[in-house]
């Protein structure tokens, strides 16, 4: 993969990871808190926690191991994209940490 393509992937990648993580957390909350009651609350916490750790690791990649070559603007964009989406993943997970049940 060419350096410019790699740095572009590092800009877009964290966004895709955030989107998948958001959808996962939303789906888990829907599974636990809707009338069908598919999973229990501890199950929600466990799976949500695992998804968060995984997503956070991926989002932080461009921050901790930034692309070595490529246009400097895109390398900078990759760093900030990774940082912003890492925060956003944590914010998604915040809902799971601060509440003890679907009702709060």
């Amino acid at each position: 993969m060419s350096p410019i393509r790699r740095s572009l992937l590092c800009v877009i990648g964290p966004g895709i990871v955030w989107a998948v993580h958001f959808t996962t957390v939303y789906a888990l909350i829907s599974a636990a808190c809707a009338p069908r009651d598919l999973i229990d609350y501890p199950g929600l916490l466990l799976s949500g926690g695992l998804a968060t750790v995984f997503a956070l690791g991926l989002c932080l990649l461009p921050v901790l191991c930034p692309p070595r070559a490529g246009p400097p603007e895109l390398i900078r964009a990759a760093f900030w994209s990774g940082l912003i989406f890492s925060l956003a993943v944590l914010a998604n997970a915040g809902a799971l940490v601060f509440f003890q049940s679907c009702g709060g």
């Binding site: 966004g15 955030w18 909350i29 829907s30 900078r76 912003i84 956003a88 509440f99 679907c102």
Partner: peptide, 29 residues
């Protein structure tokens, strides 16, 4: 700016239910 625009593009899809806060969605949502 590029990072910000890309981030807004993604995150703006995660806000839709804030128009529905008064509809009785679960507190977690």
């Amino acid at each position: 700016a590029v990072a910000a625009v890309v981030s807004m593009g993604f995150i703006s899809f995660g806000l839709w239910a804030h128009h529905m806060f008064a509809t009785g969605l679960p507190i977690l949502s």
